[in-house]
Write a protein that binds this DNA or RNA. Structure first.
Ligand SMILES: O=c1ccn([C@H]2C[C@H](O)[C@@H](COP(=O)(O)OP(=O)(O)OP(=O)(O)O)O2)c(=O)[nH]1
Ligand SMILES: [Mg+2]
Length: 310
DNA sequence: CAACAGTGCAA
DNA sequence: TTGCAC
DNA sequence: GTTG
């Protein structure tokens, strides 16, 4: 259901609510057998209760079946990396129906081309052991380029998930002044070390985090989606927090930071508003060495990574 | 009825 | 500015 | 879709 709203309808809010609700119900220690069990839940309103009631009663959801029938083959197009709801409809109008149809289409972005090329591999889950191996591999490569650098796998791996959708890796250097040399790790001249071919995107942001999002392949495993981000040491805690997620937790604490303290929290720091009314913020972050300090500053108990699966 | 997180790249 | 992604 |  939420995939439909995300990939085809482009309704970010319904998509978010449906996803959150499914996760909430899944995480309950029991099976939902009656709507009374969920009626009180925060974020579950009368419309969702009605849906759950229908599913409990009939084992299906008419609204979902109708939608599926309506969108048909558009959905698979929207599930390609780099193709969203708008482009999926656009491509459908142009006559594309399957991922295979897109293989020889020339006006795709580079991200979309990779999404099409590795569609099947990308959709496989990655066992966490393989993520650990990937982390070690990247650490080895980075060590030769910038000795002493820190390399950590974050994302769902760090949250302890048994399988992951992709590999998320963060890099910094304990010696802040080595930042520049670190950034070369993600420069094109070294990317082949990580990917052994041209299929990746390198994004060279302005001054701050350097990042690349691409495809990683080693040890004869399937082709995997990988994101690597380089941050300066002094914001590493913020980056680690942000990149560990999950996304729902990030949004929750960022919301709290803003409404309760008037702060702006991001992967690059915690900022105070400079002038009362306007959207102007101090450029210097409130310093935090560790994730724990960030939670403390926001008046929250520290959750271990495995308790951040919201 | 507005807000729902904040950021960065490609087109 | 919009679309898409993290 | 839900909340305030
Ligand atoms: O909209 C988003 C998406 C992601 N993130 C952060 C949190 C997330 O944990 C991390 C990595 O993103 P990814 O998409 O890889 O999610 P994941 O939590 O690692 O799950 P998966 O197993 O699907 O990769 O980036 C956000 O803050 N906002
Ligand atoms: Mg991930």
């Amino acid at each position: 259901m939420w995939h439909l709203y995300e990939d085809v309808l482009g309704d970010q809010w319904r998509s978010l609510i449906y996803r959150k609700t499914v996760n909430k119900l899944r995480s309950l220690p029991y099976k939902v057998t009656s709507v009374e069990q969920i009626r009180e839940m925060y974020g579950v309103g009368k419309s969702l209760v009605k849906m759950v009631k229908e599913i409990l009663g009939t084992g299906q959801l008419q609204k979902l079946d109708n939608l599926k029938a309506q969108v048909g083959e558009i959905q698979v197009l929207g599930s390609v990396w780099g193709i969203g709801a708008i482009q999926a409809r656009e491509l459908y109008k142009k006559g594309f129906r399957t991922v295979k149809d897109l293989e020889n289409y020339s006006s795709l972005t580079s991200m979309q081309r990779m999404g099409v090329k590795y569609y099947d591999d990308i959709n496989l889950r990655i066992p966490r052991d393989e993520v650990a191996d990937t982390e070690k591999f990247v650490r080895g490569v980075v060590e030769t380029l910038a000795p002493g650098a820190w390399v950590n796998a974050a994302g769902s791996y760090r949250r302890g998930k048994p399988t992951c959708g992709d590999v998320d890796i963060l890099i910094t250097h304990p010696d802040g002044s080595r930042f520049t040399s670190l950034r070369c790790c993600t420069h094109s001249s070294h990317l082949h070390l990580l990917c052994s071919h041209q299929d990746l995107l390198a994004r060279l942001g302005g001054t701050q985090p350097d990042m690349f999002m691409g495809i990683f392949h080693f040890q004869g495993k399937p082709y995997r989606r990988i994101d690597i981000k380089v941050y300066p040491r002094h914001v590493y805690a913020f980056a680690l927090l942000a990149f560990t997620g999950n996304d729902v937790l990030n949004r929750k604490i960022r919301f709290l930071a803003r409404v309760k303290f008037g702060y702006k929290l991001s992967d690059q720091g915690l900022f105070i508003r400079e002038s009362k009314k306007k959207d102007v913020w101090f450029t210097e972050s409130i310093p935090c060495e560790t994730e724990r300090e960030i939670f403390e500053k926001l008046g929250l108990d520290y959750p271990e990574p495995h308790d951040r699966n919201w």
